[in-house]
């Protein structure tokens, strides 16, 4: 198993390097650069100003040299400096990490738990009214655009009922601490996490339902039934466990993207996460910051893919590690 992990890590580093190089060139294909954006914002510009900005961003150097400097930095775990925000990239990402993870992990948990639960029920009662109701419920949240669900949520729960705050991570200026602060953050978290969680829930519901129905038809389930096992035991121990493999795959892929945040949800709810940081960096052509977020996100996808492979083994002992 160790050699499996080692080889995957080496492959991962190569993939990461390829991603860095590709992204480096891709984001430079977009029209405009940070100097152009900042000169525009200043409401005035002249040749000296634009040239100064280009030098400041290191854009006056030849492209291969810029790439070399960047890759060298990455190799020493230095993500560079955002001249736009006048702070190191790692610090900027680090500041957003707690809020991002809180939102995406909560949404992930909501989608996974509710998805598997609803999927199991839908499979168990396939073809009944309950099955249809669950499917419709799940698909409604999948079909509706996130920003729409978010805005309707705000309209209902913030404006009309005044139950939940409409934006932000905490009540600004309340200076709450300890448990009161945790409750305050939780209140702010409910709407964005539910919006995001319900969207992804549909995928897990459908996947679990389909997978369970497939497994249910297999011979070993008939054997289990013939052995006289109760329906609950068959569903839980035999059907669900075997049906979970595709769900684990999906969850693995999904969890790798969690650190990238959720741009739309974060924007509508003013949640201070990495998704928004990345979006703003894109609009402002903040190359170093954008690349930094990409590097971290890519690394996470690779790491979670590895973890998914390892979890496979736990869920299904028939799978062996081969390199």
């Amino acid at each position: 198993m160790l050699s499996f992990v080692a080889q995957r890590v080496v492959k991962g580093v190569i993939v990461l390097l390829a991603i860095v190089v590709l992204n480096f060139f891709l984001i430079r294909l977009a029209p405009g650069d940070p100097a152009v954006v900042m000169a525009g914002e200043a409401g005035a510009s002249d040749q000296i100003f634009v040239q100064q900005l280009r030098e400041k961003f290191g854009l006056d150097k030849p492209l291969p040299e810029q790439l070399f400097i960047y890759v060298k930095g990455i190799a020493t775990l230095d993500l560079g400096f955002s001249f736009r925000q006048q702070a190191p990239v790692a610090k900027l990402i680090g500041e957003r990490l707690p809020a991002t993870l809180l939102l995406t992990l909560t949404a992930f948990a909501i989608s996974l738990v509710l998805g598997v639960l609803f999927g199991t029920f839908a499979a168990r009662f396939a073809g009944t009214f309950l099955d249809t109701a669950i499917t419709v419920f799940a698909l409604i949240f999948y079909a509706m655009p996130i920003f729409w669900v978010a805005l309707m949520g705000i309209l209902l729960f913030s404006v009309t009922m005044d139950w939940l705050p409409s934006f932000g991570y905490e009540t600004v200026g309340a200076n709450l601490t300890g448990f009161a602060h945790a409750v305050d953050v939780a209140k702010h978290l409910i709407m964005p996490a539910m919006t995001l969680g319900l969207f992804f829930m549909a995928t897990y519901t459908r996947m679990t339902r389909a997978s369970m129905l497939e497994v249910k038809r297999l011979d070993f389930v008939k054997t289990a039934r013939a052995k006289g096992l109760s329906d609950a035991v068959i569903q839980r121990r035999h059907v669900l466990r075997n049906a979970l493999l595709p769900v684990v795959t999906l969850a693995g892929v999904h969890s790798g993207t969690l650190i990238g945040g959720a741009v739309i949800t974060e924007t509508v709810f003013a949640w201070p996460g990495i998704g928004r940081l990345m979006y703003d960096a894109l609009l402002q052509r903040d190359y170093n910051l954008l690349l930094g977020v990409f590097v971290i996100c890519s690394a996470m996808v690779l790491i979670f893919n590895l973890i998914t492979d390892l979890v496979y083994r736990l869920v299904d002992p028939r799978i062996e590690f081969t390199t």
């Binding site: 913030s158 932000g168 509508v268 003013a270 201070p272 928004r276 703003d280």
Partner: peptide, 14 residues
């Protein structure tokens, strides 16, 4: 307190 709310509709609601 300068509050940062990126979405225009959300600013109105705030």
């Amino acid at each position: 307190y300068w509050q940062i709310i990126p979405d225009a509709a959300a600013r109105s609601v705030a």
